[in-house]
Amino acid sequence: MPDPKTVADLKIGEAGEIAGFKDTKLSLKLLEMGCLPGSKVKMNSEAPFGDPISICIGGSHLSMRRAEAAIIIIK
């Protein structure tokens, strides 16, 4: 089975819909901050050196490391 696509795979400006998480422990903070399955997420920008990244979700911008973005599965 190929690895599912995650937020870390999005290019700047690309969007997707959250399908689930690869890691329950790390997902809690993301869930609490409103990264819920079914919500639309857009890659907004990258910091210099490509990491961390910022995404748009709901009405706000969240920054996270690529390693964290890579647990958010999208479809």
Partner: peptide, 10 residues
């Protein structure tokens, strides 16, 4: 443990 860096950019 893993380091978490999720934060809001207000």
């Amino acid at each position: 443990g893993k380091s978490v860096f999720v934060m809001e950019l207000p």
